[in-house]
Amino acid sequence: MKVRIHVSLKQGVLDPQGRAVHHSLGGLGFTGVDDVRIGRTVEMDVADDTTETQLTNMCEKLLANTVIENYRIEMVG
């Protein structure tokens, strides 16, 4: 089973990388971009009987730092 974990910075946490990319997009002439935030996607092949609880534990213990990041689990199938 394929699973994607989407990790993103929480609202209110300044994203220096996103800000730099936002600035560069403006420099390239792309106007109308209000905000840029950079996250991370972790793609995993896991056993078919892997439970959502197990995936949640993986996120809480390692894949995301919940002090600064949110995560979303997507079952790709």
């Binding site: 300044l14 220096p16 990388q17 730092n65 002090v67 600064i68």
Partner: peptide, 17 residues
């Protein structure tokens, strides 16, 4: 130490990159 939760908070990329 922050990742191990022995200390609060997190260390992020420097603001000026």
């Amino acid at each position: 130490l922050t990742e191990a939760r022995l200390l609060p908070g997190a260390l992020m990329r420097n603001a000026q990159q």
